[in-house]
Every structure is written in structure tokens, then in C-alpha cells.
Design a protein around this nucleic acid. Structure first.
Lengths: 191, 191
DNA sequence: TAGTTTCGCTACGGAAGCGTAGCGTAGTCT
DNA sequence: AGACTACGCTACGCTTCCGTAGCGAAACTA
């Protein structure tokens, strides 16, 4: 359809998305102005407006550019699968800018429909893998039949987010493991 | 020390804090400008600067003005105490502007030390009550000796926050009850 | 190599918000 | 009543950011 794109466009586009993500993490959404992005990236302001209509459009694109669906680990056991997924979540909550971006997105989604839609899309794709893993666990009999996967999901991911965002404590692999064990125990699974 | 304060100051101060909170909920921190607060409150911009140095000072004051420590319910049982506290949390996450303000505060705390300190203070005062309740439960033998109250806290409040902020589902009393029951079960308490 | 497209750069006009000064009015205290 | 204080209002200069126009240089395509 689109044939090939001028490499200059691809280059400036990639540069701008990277710079935008960096500024979002450093300064937040509101302070990530077109002016600042132009200055920090070395790309001219006019070039930005040639590819995006407005600041929200660029920021939304930047957020969208880091969405990634975690792969299904399929280790053979529910405990193994959940440990893989929650370890990944713990890592992205602890290191790198992803956590800060997530909180900024949640806040923006409270008031802006476009950010809300993006947030919804991000959460859905990320959750679909976990839900699939939980369903498989139910099918295997590792969780009671009739268990609500969405409920289990909130029980698993919630403590990690809360600990990071509100309690302000460390979220590492050891913590992820203790959460997985507690939740499985709560549903009467074999510890 | 301060003796008495001119009622005109108290009045304009109260008006401004209320208006600021409303705008924070409606527009977020960045868009809650001094100019907007003046316009919406009917209080002159100059009057605002007579009481606060800057926008962050006023916004921090506004956030601080709604901090409230929940009272210890002390119903006699751990289950009863936790239900009281989590029902309150569920309510404030579902209705009113408090939830949006909370997410804005979390986001701001990621980058601004002053907001981080306020966030820390808010979380600590709110958590101290829950931790006390959990400790009492341990003393009564309703939770195993050696249980880490902070861990239980994240297991309880985390799912509610996650469900509200990320899953986007309803957080009501029924949900709070299911979380309390699951967590107590996870720690081997009598259901 | 010749034509096309993107780029960087400069220069705008306009909007919004900041923070302050000066002044007359209205409310408060004694 | 009289002194005092906070208030509202207007006006201002300053800064930041917006979004666009025009142009020559550079990079890409065929």
C-alpha cells in the first residue's frame, strides 16, 4: 500500500519518538512541549509539524511505540507461567522509565479520552496473556473451576503496582514470588 | 502564637483551596494555573499571590487540605476491621474526585520532590491505621505470627487500586469483600 | 545526472500565563 | 469613629509556546 518511505522521514520519526519518550519520563506529559522536543532532538520544529498535527498526537504516538505484548511463557505449570510474567512486570516497574510512563498514562487517561483509549488498549493486550495463562491453569485443575481470571489478575498485579506506586518499596523477583505463592494459596492451589 | 486571623483571609483561603481542588480533578495539575483558579473562584489573582508564592505551593496546600486519617474501626475481628477500611477505600476510589487526585499525585511524585514528600506523608498516615489493624489481628492469632503487615497491606489495597486504575472495572463493597476473604484465606485464616 | 522531497533555519504574529505595581473600596478591629 | 488591613481591579512587561511561511541546502530516487 504505502510502498517505501523516504529514509529521512523514518530517521527523523524515530529520533523524535525516542526523544519524546525520554522527555515524557523526565518531565511528564505537560512539560513535553513541541519546542522542547525540537530542542532536545536536534530536529527542527517545522519538521515535527510535518509529521504530527499537535503535541498530543506525537505524545500518543510515542506511548504507542513502546507497547509490547509479553509472550506466553508456557512453562508447563501455572506457578512457572505466573512467575515469568510477574517477574517481567516487576522488572519494568523497577528499572527503566516504563513505570513512570505508566503512571503518567493512568493520570492522563482520567481526563483525556484519547489517552484513556490508549490506556485501555495497552492494558487489554497486556492482560490478555495473563488471562490466557490463568485459564490454562483452571483447565489443568491448578485453580478451582469457576474461578474468575480477571479477579486473579487484579490480585496478582495489584500488589506489585501498589507496592511500587504507593508503598514506595522495592518490587523484585522475591516479592513477585511471594505474591504468586500467596495468591495461589488463596485459591486453594497446591503451594 | 498567631493569635487570630482576619476572617477575610480565611474566607478567600478556603474558597481558593476548594476551587483548586475542583480544577485539579477536572483538568489535572498542569492545567490548574493561577490564572484559571482566579477566574473560576472569583478571587483576584493578586490576592492569590498575597497568600502563596507560586502555583506548586497552592496546589500542594490544596492536596494537603484533604488528607484525612481514617479512624480505627476496631470491630473486634480482623475481617470486620478490614472490611470497614477497604469499603472506605473502595468508596473513595469509585465516587468523587479523590481517585483522580490520587493518580495525579502519584504521577507528580515521580518527578517532583515536594509532591513525592506529600505523597509519602499521605500514604504513611493512611497505611498506619491498616497496619495497626493487621498487627492486632496477628496478636489475636487471626494471622500467623511473623506475618509482615506491609505485605498484607499491599495484597489488600493493591487489587482495588489495580482494578480501578488499570483494569477499569467497578470497585464496590462486594469486590472489597472478595479481596478481604481471598487474602485472609491466603494467610491461612479462618474464612 | 536531473528531478523530487525532506530538511534546517529564520522570522513571524498571536495566545496564555507569570508575577508585580498602584490605587480606590470595603471589611475588620479597637 | 478612626486606623488598619485585605480586597478587587487594571495595567503592565516578560517569558514560553504555538503553529505557519518562505527559502536555500542536503538527501534521496530513478
Amino acid at each position: 500500500m504505502t510502498g517505501r518511505t523516504d529514509p529521512r522521514v523514518l530517521r527523523s520519526r524515530a529520533t523524535l519518538l525516542n526523544t519524546t519518550l525520554r522527555l515524557l519520563a523526565e518531565r511528564g506529559i505537560a512539560a513535553t512541549t513541541i519546542e522542547a522536543i525540537a530542542e532536545q532532538s536536534g530536529v527542527a520544529k517545522t519538521t515535527i509539524y510535518r509529521q504530527w498535527d499537535s503535541q498530543p498526537a506525537l505524545v500518543l504516538d510515542a506511548f504507542g511505540s513502546i507497547l509490547q505484548t509479553p509472550s506466553d511463557p508456557d512453562t508447563g505449570s501455572l506457578h512457572g507461567d505466573l512467575m515469568e510474567l510477574l517477574t517481567g512486570l516487576a522488572r519494568s516497574l523497577s528499572t527503566g522509565p516504563a513505570a513512570g510512563l505508566m503512571f503518567a498514562l493512568i493520570d492522563a487517561a482520567e481526563r483525556d479520552p484519547a489517552f484513556a483509549a490508549l490506556h485501555r488498549r495497552e492494558a487489554d493486550t497486556r492482560h490478555s496473556v495473563i488471562v490466557a495463562v490463568i485459564r490454562r491453569g483452571i483447565a489443568r485443575g491448578e485453580l478451582p473451576a469457576g474461578t474468575d481470571p480477571a479477579e486473579v489478575l487484579d490480585m496478582l498485579a495489584g500488589p506489585l503496582f501498589h507496592r511500587r506506586a504507593i508503598s514506595g518499596a522495592v518490587v523484585d523477583v522475591a516479592y513477585a514470588e511471594s505474591v504468586v505463592n500467596r495468591v495461589l494459596a488463596a485459591y486453594g492451589a497446591a503451594g
